[in-house]
Simulated assay, not measured.
Amino acid sequence: MEGIRNIYCVGRNYKLHAEELGNAVPTAPMLFGKPTHALAVADGREIVLPGDRGELHYETELVIHIARPYSPEASLEEMVDHIAVGIDFTLRDVQSELKKKGYPWLLAKGFPNSAVVTSFRPFPGLQACQETDFSLQKNGEQVQRGNIRDVIFDLMTIIRFTGEHFGLGQGDLIFTGTPDGVGATKNGDHFGLFFGKEKWGEFTAKLS
């Protein structure tokens, strides 16, 4: 996927997801990054993921594509030009050990193909996103469903925080957080990513 620069992810941005993992609900956006090698496209292919490092969890998210360099005066519509549905894959056992030691999460979050995205579609505006759920099906069964109207930190808050603390420019991606319902991935699981009733992407997980 050409033109993608930085990949930012917002942790614990849905209250129920924070609670299901026993985490405190944050009082400010909690961001981490993934390298561009983590990016993979859900275009029907097999996607290779680690199967030898403990449980691998899916976390479905709405992903925004940044249109221009950050400016405090810019509106949401000026900052975001496209959206996708994505999965922030997480090595949960690895993450738990890193948390215990107070280490960064990169080993649990930044491995190749850990940032799966559908094709990007034009940003329909905030209201349309709040009126449309995104969801994930695993082997034909819905396992996650969310809507950005339920986030703790809204899109503009996330954009401002990211731009002010890390920098934000054209081609950057932000994974905006996952709702509750995360779970384990097994070899051969087939995933479908939906925006509303429309399937935006799909792939099969190959654990190795």
Rank of each mutant, 00 (worst) to 15 (best):
K34Y: 08
I83M: 06
G201C: 07
E2V: 10
E78Y: 15
P29V: 06
S96M: 09
F161H: 15
S96G: 04
A128R: 13
D180K: 15
I152N: 00
S208Y: 10
V182R: 04
H65W: 14
E19L: 15
F194P: 01
W105Q: 07
F32W: 15
R53N: 09
L107K: 14
Q127S: 10
E20A: 11
I152M: 02
T162C: 07
L39W: 12
E78G: 14
Q144K: 13
G54Y: 05
E59F: 11
E55F: 07
Y58R: 02
T204R: 08
R121C: 09
F203E: 00
Q142K: 15
L168K: 05
F161C: 05
I83S: 02
G102W: 01
Y70W: 15
K199V: 08
Y103H: 12
S71H: 15
V10G: 03
H82Y: 13
P29Q: 12
S135I: 02
Y103K: 12
M79V: 02
F111V: 01
D150C: 00
L126R: 05
R5C: 10
T132Q: 03
N139V: 03
E77P: 05
L16H: 15
Y14G: 02
K206G: 04
G167N: 13
A67M: 14
V151A: 05
K186R: 12
V143P: 03
E141I: 12
M156F: 10
M1D: 09
F194Q: 06
G146S: 02
E19G: 04
P29S: 12
D189V: 01
V63W: 08
E19V: 05
V63F: 10
I87G: 00
Q142C: 07
E131F: 07
P72K: 14
R160P: 06
M1T: 13
L91I: 09
C129K: 00
D88R: 11
D154Q: 10
R45V: 05
D88C: 06
K109C: 01
G54P: 02
H65T: 05
E19A: 10
E97S: 11
Q144C: 02
P179I: 06
K109S: 04
E131R: 09
A184T: 10
A84E: 02
G3H: 11
L21S: 11
S96Y: 01
L193K: 02
H57S: 05
P50K: 01
F32L: 07
E20G: 08
H190A: 08
L168T: 01
F111R: 02
R5H: 14
D172R: 01
Y58Q: 01
G146M: 03
I64K: 02
I148K: 01
L16W: 14
V116A: 07
G169N: 13
K197Q: 15
H165F: 14
N13M: 05
H37V: 14
M1I: 11
Q130C: 08
F89W: 13
L207R: 00
T60N: 04
R68H: 11
L193Q: 01
L155T: 04
G44V: 04
A24E: 12
Y103M: 14
F175W: 07
Y58N: 00
K100Y: 01
L76Q: 05
G33D: 07
A184I: 10
G3W: 11
M156S: 09
T204E: 09
L107E: 13
L21D: 07
